[in-house]
Amino acid sequence: MISIQFLAAIILISLGLSVAVFKKNLIKIVMAVHVIGSGVNLFLVSLGYRAGGIAPIFTDASKLQMVLPTTQALTLTSIVIDFAVVALMLSFVISIYGHYGTLDTQKRRLKE
């Protein structure tokens, strides 16, 4: 029986991928990249999840009670990276809109 959080991660990733492949609006593509990133982050953070565990900041607790700290560190880093990528992509979208006057990848023509 597959856990629900892994299932959710897979659904998010495939949703993002299908939008990135089939949609023609640039903003939707940016959103798709972000959704893929969120799916992967969900997958990572749920790898270290332990039912009833506590946050790994109280070092007095026994090792088995804590959720895994590594995956949380990884997820935090990857969220920051995701943020940087999406911000840069949106700034490209702004410039592309300024040059072409549309966000549709099929209809773009250079403004005279």
């Binding site: 990135a20 940016v30 990249v33 990133g37 992967v40 790898l47 590594t70 995956t71 990884l74 979208v93």
Partner: peptide, 22 residues
């Protein structure tokens, strides 16, 4: 834009693979 979109989707898949190994 094309470069960043495609390469970051690639990176996330790589992170997914790394997560599986982890």
């Amino acid at each position: 834009f094309k470069y960043l979109a495609i390469s970051s989707i690639g990176s996330f898949f790589m992170l997914f693979g790394i997560g599986l190994l982890y």
